[in-house]
Design a binder for these strands. Structure first.
Lengths: 283, 283
DNA sequence: TTGCCTGTTTGATCCAGATCAACAGACATA
DNA sequence: TATGTCTGTTGATCTGGATCAAACAGGCAA
């Protein structure tokens, strides 16, 4: 893959050309640049072109991310407090459990996981995070992070100093509103995970997981039916409260039943409808 | 127990007198009425005494609840938007999944549960809520409640219209701050539940559950070692991702091992330390 | 007092998923 | 190109908790 966009690097061999193009379209890194060069400075904003490149307003994620619903001038104010493009290499920690809360982080590119730790070494994956999603909200209550955040592939995040975000959200109702929405959606997601962990059987859990990924990729303009997993079977298992062997077997069974095609990390949903029907057969 | 305060009714026999007094003091139900007749209006506030009686500033929960950390005048502003004392009878719904978000609710007295529902009828208890805790935050993201909230015993809640809370929290930084803390703590709690559901065995889960209740009762000035369950074995099981028979057996085993005394809903923790040690033996 | 009705306890059996084990690819480094 | 280290697959066996079943206790209405 060329340019700064190596999101699909590891698995490009598995994908046909049309899909690669499709996946690269929605989040163009280079295109905005070009158009911004043509018109020197954005009429509404007093920032240089180089800043504009990564500004929220030119970021293809802004409808999903924190600035959703902001006016241009409001977005500019938010831009001023955001430290854009902090890279996190695969395997690196964005923050660790126990560390003091400084900032929230919005994923620009890449993929991360949050892990809750238990004294005895057990760890539980509490979530996987993709572009436009906000991390670190668990730390606001105590001032300390409750979990580790680790990059599953080379990623870029926007760093949003929390104190300043809180300050700014008093001045910008739309920002306040959307920040509350994002916290609340995290709570709603957590409730869904509890339902999954507390009352679904293994195959239902995996089906729900795949459909959730599918829906999130689709919301970002990617294919809903073909995507690559960024996490290992063990990490999926941890998230779903199952062992890696169980994940592997369930994948195999889904494949022999024609529900999906799996090859290593590459997934194709062949029959999303039947997958959906699979959830809710139990009990 | 007399008056409207029967929170401890079923278990008062277990408590010594000093504790009962303590428990009854903070939330006087009947007395306020009388004194309001006597002293018409509070000097600092332009509200009648009858309103003051149940005002946040006179509520024993205010250090745990939403107004934590507010100045007197700020608390007064909050008071003005809060609709105090909405009673919810045992078994009644405070709100239902799918219903539009109007208000958040702070528990004044009593005990409630939240249940996430699945199409096929399965339900998962997502949380139990006691005095000072805030319900409904899952609904902010979508504008619709994600779960049912049901009273497990006759309860009173304060109704806090969400739009007005959001508005007011722009004017009162301490309120904004604390509201964010409460949402964040819910997220942190959820992560803990995921850890529990995803990687603990049955007895660890129950021990963690008992210790969590103990700690929450203690934070409210109740005994940390003697309390009454407000929920059935089935509800505990649902919350912990286990069947009611498993809960019952685990209780029995804890009892024969001298960790606790159980009799129906009444619990005494005989050896909290060993209970704590029990968590984290597995894996 | 009787007779539900709901919730709880305890025993016997079963099974979904864990555990143990062997092996096969994929990928990274030299 | 060889080599070692992760990661994933599949089989055989085991087991914690589910399921099925029976009996019982407490609350409450008639």
């Amino acid at each position: 893959m060329h340019g700064g966009f190596h999101y699909q690097r590891a698995t490009s061999a598995n994908l046909d050309a049309s899909q690669i193009r499709y996946k690269m379209n929605p989040i163009p890194d280079a295109l905005p640049l070009i158009s911004s060069v043509m018109s020197t400075v954005h009429p509404l904003r007093n920032v240089s072109v180089s800043q504009l490149r990564t500004a929220c307003s030119s970021c293809s994620l802004h409808e999903l991310c924190l600035p959703a619903g902001l006016e241009a001038d409001e977005m500019e104010q938010l831009d001023r407090i955001v430290n854009r493009k902090r890279p996190v290499k695969r395997g690196e920690y964005l923050y660790r459990a126990g560390g003091a809360l400084q900032s929230l982080y919005a994923v620009r590119t890449g993929f991360l996981k949050s892990c809750v730790l238990h004294d005895d070494g057990r760890e539980q994956v509490a979530g996987f995070h993709m572009m436009g999603e906000l991390l670190g909200m668990d730390a606001i209550g105590s001032g300390k992070h409750m979990c580790d955040a680790v990059a599953l592939e080379d990623s870029d995040v926007c760093e949003i100093p929390f104190i300043e975000l809180e300050q700014l959200s008093r001045d910008i109702p739309a920002l306040q509103r959307h920040f509350h929405r994002m916290m609340s959606r995290e709570i709603a997601r957590d409730y869904g995970v509890m339902l999954l962990l507390g009352s679904m059987r293994a195959e239902e859990r995996l089906a729900a997981f795949l459909l959730n990924l599918s829906q999130r990729f689709a919301a970002r303009g990617y294919s809903a039916t073909r995507f690559n997993l960024r996490m290992t079977r063990e990490e999926i298992g941890s998230y779903l409260g199952l062992k890696l062997e169980t994940i592997s077997r369930a994948f195999s069974r889904f494949q022999t039943e024609g529900l999906i095609t799996v090859q290593n990390k590459s997934i194709e949903l062949k029959d999303p409808e039947r997958l959906r029907a699979l959830i809710g057969q139990g009990a």
